[in-house]
Design a protein around this nucleic acid. Structure first.
Lengths: 293, 293
DNA sequence: GTGAAAGCGCTAACAG
DNA sequence: CTGTTAGCGCTTTCAC
């Protein structure tokens, strides 16, 4: 040991991976936009993993067609597990992971009719709280600004918003589709106002769109928020708390969700036979000043 | 080959790494806040690297004391190179990389009196443009809101702001220190206003602090921006362009910088003897409506 | 041209 | 308890 110290010996992790059949690496899949929502999420996940002495091999996926190439890389690099913050997975993708015996945890996404490990914020509860709050505030006409239909999260939030509105008797609520960005929230609201009256309330798929909508209402249309128009978002990003907006929204418990995702993954790496688990964490209703209640 | 296809053979990247003495992995070092400034920067770098068939091994560093542990990991994992978006490196750290023959590229940071590969936005030019614009707008009293002294970027931006102000005869401009966050910009400006008059202009180390300062001025203090107070930032983050702020700032050319960083690194991996290179890219002055000019 | 073999640096099993 | 050895899956060399 003395000699090793003196010579500055460092074990070679790659040789160790080869013999132990364990790479000690987990693939994390992000998109350009997934870090936009939660800049700190990736850091949290990395921290959690490094407490288990696991390294992060980062993959970005913006075009969903490239998923197959990405999966190739994952097999080749012999990662011990995968955490997906981006991408849409169908049951065939998940089956491939099972074949390769690589555990996967999906973040805020599901695979219909197929058991898979997921960590999700409680979208149903969150949208119920938001809709109930708006209904309680006496709002009668609504507009939904949704993220893109190719996004699992957008689809879930939109359909739940519509379902909860329907529960209160509001059917056929109009929906416009954007891309989760500030600009799309702004543009969609401007588009709506070109040939419609302002609704009482706008329900947005995320905070960025809600902020865009508020800026357009106040700046472009001269509509007072929340006096004349209520706007709600989802996520609880930093800007939602800025005093210029003070958004009414649902905050995702990012730290707990990161911890849960890593926990589930490490458990499956240790015990490959453990059955899939869905963990749903409640978000926190933030009663800001962008909506009357 | 037919048999290989049929059996679904996938080469084992780890065995290949062992024999070729090339891991095909690059370590990227981020902090929780570095992704806050540019959510897309990490994606861009990852994309660029994957065009060279290089994978990203992600490291996060929030406490600078943990740099030594991190370096240990880097030696052990035999990465082919390192891109550092976070952390402060001194010449001894860089010397270690040289010993291990691992090329490094620093992003927006320097090592004094020591040759090292860096990619930087032109802070000097940027702050000159901002200060000249403010001087041209007739501002006579200034306040500087700086990031923390432990941050290389904050120190560089602060001292350049002060130097350019001095060049116009404004010495002893007051400085307050925060942590780059929205909240610190807001708090510092409130603190200043408790026992001082408002300055004509506030120069902030980044856009988040500038936005916090604007919100505090408008909301907390009832000061009109830009009529009574000019505020400038640095970076050109997304929110800087929101119509609620329209910040006057310098936009970093993130895409080009990501490309440059990866280019320099790949060059050093191919040719380990190439001398260190500093590449400085000009930012773009964004003349928003947060400052009179 | 095809085929065999050495060896990358480690771990785990086993012998002394 | 210390020391030796097989072998992880690949690339490269060298013999045929």
């Amino acid at each position: 040991m003395k000699a090793a110290k003196k010579l500055g010996y460092k074990p070679n992790a790659i040789a160790r991976m080869l013999i132990t059949q364990r790479s000690g690496m987990v693939a994390v899949i992000i998109s350009s936009t997934s870090t936009l929502v939660y800049p700190e999420l990736l850091s949290r996940i990395t921290e959690q993993l490094s407490e288990h002495n696991v390294k992060v091999l980062l993959f970005t996926l913006d075009e969903s067609e490239q998923l197959d190439e990405l999966l190739e890389q994952i097999w080749v690099y012999q990662v011990d597990g995968v955490i997906a913050l981006a991408a849409h997975f169908d049951y065939r993708d998940i089956a491939q992971f099972e074949e390769h015996q690589i555990p996967v945890v999906l973040y805020n996404r599901q695979v219909t009719n197929y058991p898979v490990n997921t960590v999700c914020v409680d979208h149903d509860q969150g949208l119920k709280q938001l809709v109930d709050l708006l209904i309680g505030g006496g709002h009668k006409s609504f507009l939904v600004l949704s993220g893109p239909t190719r996004s699992d999260v957008a689809n879930e939030r939109r359909s739940l918003a519509l379902a909860h509105l329907a529960r209160h008797g509001f059917e056929d609520v109009p929906v416009l589709y954007g891309d989760f960005s500030y600009q799309s929230g702004k543009d969609l609201f401007a588009e709506w106002m070109r040939d419609h009256d302002a609704p009482d309330a706008v329900i947005c798929s995320n905070d960025s769109m809600a902020i865009g909508c508020i800026d357009e209402a106040r700046g472009g249309q001269g509509i007072k928020v929340p006096e004349q128009l209520s706007v709600v978002g989802f996520d609880g990003i930093h800007a939602a708390f800025w005093s210029g907006y003070e958004l009414t929204t649902i905050r995702q418990p990012v730290n707990q969700m990161a911890k849960a995702a890593v926990g589930i993954l490490m458990e499956r790496i240790e015990h490959p036979d453990a059955p899939p688990e869905k963990r749903v964490l409640s978000g926190t209703l933030i009663t800001g000043s962008s909506a009357r209640s």
